[in-house]
């Protein structure tokens, strides 16, 4: 019996895979035979990464003519071509807004079942199941897919990226070119501007997939320097509340919440954040929640595993220094 093909949509294969991509490949290895797909030609670095993760087939989903894969329906049609070519049983993608829309249209086109924003996925017997955490992290639900093909987006930090014992011998790159329909090309892309990193934080992980997130709210009074210092000490990303974004203190990309970025890091630290429902909805599935606030009645304390009542400018730099010191001592110990 052959194992099912598990198609993994990789977002950054043209440069190098981030942990989000490696996590999806790790999951794919537990489900069947991983097959990689991207809308862009893979870089040499990415090919070596997927080889290490047991991938021997890499498909480029290409569009005929001058059609951008950033046009959602066109991307979905290209992806449908690859699903057909690979007879994939499962399609996995990271849960960016773009991906959610692309895989929804893919599922619509091929009659597949769709589970969005799972925390992880698996087979129960022959059934593919997506495990979801919903209602701001207060309920767990299991969604069984009853169609032949299952499509799912999986949140970051679902698994620790782990390559299989056996890497692939080599990776075959194939291009599947699809001519998009008239409907798909009825939308034109006028412009596309890539933002600089949040608060100029070059080298920080992406907020949606960071293992550590330090977020600032109204209590920062607009000064994010201590939030950033702690994030950098942990090797994490910087986030914010909608209030802080609306005040113009930080970019929209940093907004954590129901309509912003959903994060589920190992550790979330909220600094000067009261914890409005909108914000909670975007972070309540975090592994460990820590909060620092000068207000002893801060509502976020109610869902925090650890909380400090204190001034941000005292607590955050002291914590950052202690973490740097600890990391340095660990580095020496292992050296």
């Amino acid at each position: 019996m052959t194992t099912p093909n598990i198609l993994v949509l990789l977002d950054t294969a043209d440069t190098q895979l981030t942990s989000a991509g490696l996590e999806l490949l790790t999951l794919a290895n537990t489900l069947g035979t991983p097959v990689a797909v991207s809308f862009h030609e893979p870089s040499a670095t990415a090919l070596e990464q997927v080889r290490t993760y047991g991938v021997s087939r890499f498909l480029v989903a290409a569009l005929d003519g001058d059609i951008s894969p950033h046009i959602t329906p066109a991307a979905a049609e290209a992806l449908a071509g690859v699903v057909k070519e690979t007879t994939a049983r499962v399609v996995l993608a990271s849960p960016t807004f773009q991906n959610k829309e692309v895989v929804a249209r893919l599922a619509h086109a091929i009659g597949a079942g769709l589970v969005i924003d799972t925390v992880t996925v698996g087979f129960e017997g022959d059934d593919f199941v997506g495990y979801k955490r919903v209602f701001a992290g207060s309920w767990d639900i299991d969604c069984k897919v009853v169609t032949d093909v299952a499509v799912a987006t999986v949140r970051a930090n679902a698994v620790i990226p782990t390559p299989p014992a056996q890497p692939a011998a080599d990776v075959q790159v194939e291009t599947v070119t699809v001519t998009p329909s008239a409907l798909a090309t009825s939308v034109s892309l006028v412009s596309r501007t890539v933002h600089p990193p949040i608060h100029g934080g070059v080298g920080r992980p992406r907020l949606a997939e960071a293992p550590y997130v330090v977020a600032g709210g109204r209590g920062t009074l607009g000064d994010f320097s201590q939030v950033e210092e702690l994030a950098d000490a942990l090797g994490g990303a910087v986030g914010a509340t909608r209030d802080a974004v609306d005040e113009g203190w930080i970019e929209h990309d940093a907004q954590i919440g129901q309509t912003g970025v959903t994060v589920a890091p190992r550790v979330y630290i909220g600094a000067g954040i009261s914890g409005a429902p909108h914000h909670r909805g975007g972070m309540q599935a975090s592994g460990v929640i820590v909060s620092v606030n000068s207000d002893p009645d801060c509502p976020l304390f109610e869902i925090s595993d650890f909380a400090v009542v204190g001034e941000l400018q005292d607590v955050l730099p002291q914590a950052a220094a202690a973490i740097r010191e600890y990391k340095a001592s660990q580095g020496e110990a292992s050296a």
């Binding site: 969604c143 897919v145 650890f306 400090v308 730099p317």
Partner: peptide
């Protein structure tokens, strides 16, 4: 094409009372 086959409320977090910063709150964190 999908069915919710199981649903359960998650247990509440194990909450400890907040630490009040007396000059070592950051170290405690």
């Amino acid at each position: 094409r999908t069915h919710v086959v199981k649903s359960a409320p998650r247990p509440p977090r194990d909450i400890t009372p907040p630490v009040v910063d007396k000059g070592d709150g950051g170290l405690a964190l």
